[in-house]
Design a protein around this nucleic acid. Structure first.
Lengths: 226, 226
DNA sequence: GTTTATCAACTGGTCTGACCAGTTGATGAT
DNA sequence: ATCATCAACTGGTCAGACCAGTTGATAAAC
């Protein structure tokens, strides 16, 4: 692992585990670099990334502080939480699905109004999807990404991209493993396609709303015991 | 202006203006540093920030590329767009308000269910608000931030924080300047308070939905000519 | 002539150690 | 007791060297 990635990994891990609690000061850069086994310039590059993501508050002359990242951080902190914490917070995925439920009907509606032909070609592709978790996870991400981009409101895509690093991974390993999940999504893709072809925007948005809500229920059903 | 900020400013400005078009390669770090009048380590810290925000794709051995930031970037690119482009994209604020419309009813509902007492104390504070754009902008941001944090779903707060750098500024200078906007918000705060006190979560969510939608109409009414 | 190995010249990545520049609290003068 | 001063933190920047992937031109092999 590259020095800068090692430094970033070590810092986020330490922060997430509370070894550097929120609000406290990090060791000085010279000490910290020595502890992590990297040099100061390398450490500083890592610190700049963490600062940009909302993990840290860096101020000239003062100690670098651990930010209250869950309250004041940026969307990128989710990547760190997924990648570097031992196990996900229990409600992580339901929280994610809840936000998707809020947004998906809107960006789906807009995308259909703006670029129905694009969506039709994307949605037709689902018919040739192999019935594997990997294929479904990849396709599902692509679909939502296309929808947000085609919505014409860039903010939808920018928000969705905050989930880019783990959406496919979590979907493949924890959701589309289950036959019912793949079947539910396949039905959704087919039905959405027919609504788009029929030009029925309202029905498409309503369908999306129902399916996004159902996916939360489905997730919780799947994971009620495990 | 500090060298690193100057470098960041210059790079984002150049990218936004298309001087470094999406998909093209940046000059090598040695050249680029010289052009910007900073040294390579300083430039690299700036590049790391831009990479974290989704402006750039950096790969060892290859040229650094300008990312398709509107399609693949993170929420932080909005800060860059607001700060460094001459004037905002025409639909910028309506797009922002549209996303808020999607999310606010949900996080308001959750916040009321989780922590009604917190909201009551925050909402009561509105009664002593001076009738100034600055006071309203600050209060409005604080309210939404409180709502997202109290919702119990951290993702709402993380998304909202993507707007932190310009929400107050834009609200103060382009929205709450207008008496009707302040009056509308004051009425909203009062009505929301009464619903929270009455424990009527559904009515509070519905109200939020109506007001967020109305704020888009109001914005467009205000800015139809200017 | 075509193919394949090699290597030079890019690119970014890291290290070294020095010095600049804000911040803070202890020290000492008033 | 108060206030200026300054030493010792902190992060910020500079300098130049060298390490490490990538790429395409060159030359060797077929």
């Amino acid at each position: 692992m590259r020095p800068i990635d090692h430094a970033q990994q070590a810092l986020i891990t330490a922060i997430v585990r509370g070894e550097y609690p929120v609000g406290t000061a990090l060791p000085g850069e010279r000490d910290l670099a020595a502890q992590l086994g990297v040099t100061r310039p390398t450490l500083r590059e890592a610190l700049r990334r963490l600062e940009a993501d909302g993990w840290l508050i860096i101020q000239h002359g003062k100690s670098t502080l651990v930010r209250n990242y869950l309250h004041e951080g940026g969307l990128n902190v989710l990547n760190g939480i997924v990648q570097y914490s031992r196990d996900l917070p229990p409600d992580f995925v339901p929280n994610l699905l809840q936000v998707r439920l809020d947004l998906a009907p809107s960006y789906t509606r807009l995308a259909i109004m703006n670029a129905p032909h694009v969506l039709i070609s994307v949605l037709k592709a689902h018919k040739t999807l192999p019935d594997t978790p990997h294929a479904y996870a990849h396709y599902d991400w692509q679909l939502h990404h296309t929808l947000t981009v085609q919505s014409g409101n860039p903010i939808y895509a920018l928000i969705l991209n905050g989930f880019a690093d783990f959406y496919e991974y979590l979907a493949e390993t924890h959701y589309f493993q289950h036959d019912v999940a793949r079947q539910a999504s396949a039905a959704f893709y087919a039905e959405l396609l027919s609504h788009v072809q029929a030009g029925d925007v309202d029905e498409a948005a309503a369908l999306t709303q129902r399916v996004m809500a159902a996916s939360i229920t489905l997730w919780e059903m799947i994971h009620q015991t495990s």
